[in-house]
Design a protein around this nucleic acid. Sequence first.
DNA 1: CTTTGTGCAAATTCTTTGCACCAAA
DNA 2: TTTGGTGCAAAGAATTTGCACAAAG
Lengths: 139, 139
Amino acid sequence: MNTEAKSRLLKFGVKPSLHRLAIMEYLMSNLIHPTADHIYNSLFPFIPTLSKTTVYNILKLFEEKKVIAAIVIDGKNTRYDADISQHAHFQCRKCGVVHDLRLNDMAPVTMDNPDNLILDDCHIYFRGYCPDCVKSVSR
Amino acid sequence: MNTEAKSRLLKFGVKPSLHRLAIMEYLMSNLIHPTADHIYNSLFPFIPTLSKTTVYNILKLFEEKKVIAAIVIDGKNTRYDADISQHAHFQCRKCGVVHDLRLNDMAPVTMDNPDNLILDDCHIYFRGYCPDCVKSVSR
DNA sequence: CTTTGTGCAAATTCTTTGCACCAAA
DNA sequence: TTTGGTGCAAAGAATTTGCACAAAG
């Protein structure tokens, strides 16, 4: 059911076209931090009229409206996450998979902000190796 | 004087060629998180034989040897930082400038790591607007 | 010599843009 | 009938690769 996807879009002021709903629903039910390419390839079999430009357009719109979060870790592919709660990410240097990590017990943090920067959002990510990959890597 | 640059390279097991020294020295005295392009353009006038490929080669080598840190925030340009102490970054959404931010009083952090991921490094960055840019942005 | 560093040009990859068409309000 | 969503092809930008030459030990 894409009623959840629909209300999510409406909540953030995004008009729910069929393609937008499909992508939103895909993101909500596949919290694997997919790339634009991944999303396109997954949906194309079911929506043969879908174009990659549209996927990029829609992801950009979603990000601007803050419906989803864009995750940039390796500078190669931008990944997308329908889970916009505050959490950290991990990416394996070898296979590239991205996992969620939830930090516990983080004390209130203060920081010097001598330049009076306006801070919008905070991203935390770790890099390393997943158990499968670490075996096959000479480190 | 590039004696600091030289000892830095030797410390991390990088043979100090002239180009490597020049780039290392540039990074150590310009903690502005430059891009590969920025480094190339800054050094080219003084080293006319320098090629961009070499800049990329050397930066990649430095990063692998952990002489410097690569900073990926916007997925557009990788930036490089000779300051490898643990600190956070800020990038302005408008002008793209990157600043350092130092977090104080962070309590020991625990996290669930159900997948037994091997965590190598941690990056923290904020996005927002610098004081100059926030004026000219309708938000 | 043999290894390593460098450089040119071409290729690759991800993403954006220009523009035209189509659908909905 | 005006706005906005979509799609194709081309452009763009950052980085990598293949290969050849040069330098160093």
